[in-house]
Write a protein that binds this DNA or RNA. Structure first.
Lengths: 236, 236
DNA sequence: ACTCTCAACTTATTCGGACAAGTGGACGAG
DNA sequence: CTCGTCCACTTGTCCGAATAAGTTGAGAGT
């Protein structure tokens, strides 16, 4: 029952490990395909496949007639902090949950969920803390069809987090998230909860399943003085 | 002198075109590899390479033993509006430039540029407009070593934009941008220029060349009431 | 009706061979 | 010294063959 990865994947792993260990430094030229064939004992097509995939992923750069050159561990969008995903995945502490139950969907939430305004939906509101300082107000809205049978409308904390809970109870899978960010003043309620009336980073995110349906909307109020979102992107 | 793309790229193009035209709809099963070999008159390895690449790019999903299935045009991080890159690429209108010259680098800018505080740098400040409404204050900071010989420190508008100007005059290439976003109140100057004192989306971006050096820092003041940044990301 | 087997179909991987095309350096001729 | 040619090296593309492995449906047997 031994699982051996495909050879091309092993070649990729070998090269990635050498890049990360510093054996191959950014700017260095890799051994040629012919050398790798001999060293690793595989066919040339296998080596080429590994190298092409590494190039597509951004680890290396291949130049026709010259060789393959190390770029380094690629910058990845996945490296960016995604506040809405963090909210969905974070386990809840015993005193975090402020509100859990059914409410009529406000217009902007209904639109994102693809339901009619005032349709009953489940809402779950909680406070996030960092070092005992209240750092954010997080609100999650879930259509009834997805919330029925779960504990989302109950005030008991979900220790494993909302995403895991939905996966375990209803086999719901997250595929992609559409996130919108703006700057706004806090509502009166938010200012009271946060103990501050300075500008907020407002995050409104829609979580979609693989078929594109909206599973939930996550709304975050992040005090501008406590939060900064960082992103790195390539320019072609 | 006719340029024919490689066959695997032509196969990719054919399939992408059929997906975008709706001939292959999301969820549909593609013709099998063997059928594509016959239809397109190429070798199986060529078809496989095209399909594998489309799968890696997110256009299709391949299931062992079952077939290849259409997902659709992939959501791409490149689809997200990048305000700092837009600033660098946008041509300047005749009355946009507010300030152009040399100043000592403030501490937070010096740090991002990797120079000592108060080192002379070139600053270029301008107003962005949408439908004749002032929509943003944009400030660009460039180390002298990169600005010398350019027109960045002159008030005449750069019609082709800053990025193209630096590429043409100094052969500087953009590789990646680190972008930080927060929410803050405007400075007095910003409030006056923008005609509003509501919360701002503050964007601070560092543009890097392929070797990782900082080419410039772009600072944007975007009124929260006029701007919303949207992003779509995959969740695994 | 249900279950199991097999055949036809599908993708996954690997290999080797061949030709095309680009790079860089060495060597020889002018 | 300069320039052109050639050679050794490099990656780029394409093909066919083979084996492995997964899926599905039809047919036969219980």
């Amino acid at each position: 029952m031994d699982f051996a990865p495909p050879k091309y994947a092993q070649v990729m792993r070998t090269i990635q490990d050498r890049i990360e260990s510093g054996e191959y430094a950014p700017g260095d030229m890799l051994p040629s395909e012919t050398q790798l064939v001999r060293e690793l004992g595989v066919g040339r097509t296998t080596v080429v496949r590994a190298l092409q995939t590494l190039a597509m992923q951004g680890w290396i750069e291949r130049e026709h007639g010259r060789g393959s050159f190390v770029k380094g561990r690629p910058q990845s969008a996945a490296d960016r902090v995604r506040p809405s995903l963090t909210t969905a995945e974070h386990g809840e502490s015993p005193d975090a949950v402020l509100e859990a139950g059914r409410v009529p969907a406000p217009r902007h939430i209904a639109r994102l969920l693809g339901v009619a305004e005032k349709t009953p939906v489940v809402v779950r509101k909680r406070l996030a803390r960092q070092a005992d300082v209240i750092s954010a107000v997080e609100t999650v809205w879930v259509p009834l069809e997805h919330a029925l049978g779960t504990d989302l409308d109950k005030p008991e904390p979900l220790r494993r987090g909302i995403r895991q809970h939905l996966q375990a109870v209803k086999h719901l899978r997250f595929d992609h998230i559409t996130e919108r960010i703006n700057a706004r003043p806090p509502t009166e309620e938010e200012a009271e909860l946060l103990g501050s009336s300075g500008p907020l980073l407002g995050v409104l995110a829609t979580v979609h399943d693989p078929a594109g349906n909206a599973l939930m909307v996550i709304s975050l109020a992040l005090p501008g003085s406590l939060h900064e979102l960082e992103d790195v992107f390539k320019v072609s």
